[in-house]
């Protein structure tokens, strides 16, 4: 399955990347491009909508590490709707300490800054 990604930038400084399909070495660069764009836009918060992401290979996990470094410590990163299989791997690695995991998109929490 291919990866579909979509980047939305709001004037308030919110960047939302929606991921669908499978994230692996063959398409991690697409994800990286959008992270770079979000960082260039000086967004204040980055939200990854993961509910339609079925699988994440090591390249995808590595890209999460890249995301944290690229955005910097001052930018909160939210991961929304991560599927259990993906979340288990994220938690085993320990990436959940670097991001905020939400089951659903909570506008009150995400958009208040």
């Amino acid at each position: 399955m291919a990866l579909e990604t979509k980047l939305e930038l709001s004037p308030k400084g919110l960047a939302i990347i929606t991921l669908a399909g499978e994230l692996d070495a063959s398409n991690a660069a697409d994800f990286q491009t959008q992270i770079t764009q979000a960082a260039s836009a000086n967004c204040k918060r980055l939200v990854l909508i993961m509910q339609d992401l079925e699988y994440m290979a090591s390249a995808g996990l590595r890209m999460l590490a890249f995301t944290k470094q690229k955005m910097g410590a001052s930018v909160d990163i939210y991961m929304v709707g991560t599927k259990p299989t993906v979340q288990e791997t994220i938690e085993a690695v320990g990436f959940q300490y670097s991001v905020i995991m939400l089951e659903t998109y909570d506008a009150a929490q995400i958009e208040q800054f």
């Binding site: 090591s58 996990l61 791997t89």
Partner: peptide, 9 residues
């Protein structure tokens, strides 16, 4: 996570 190559992390 070694099968994902993430043992270092």
């Amino acid at each position: 996570t070694a099968p994902h190559g993430m043992q270092v992390d």
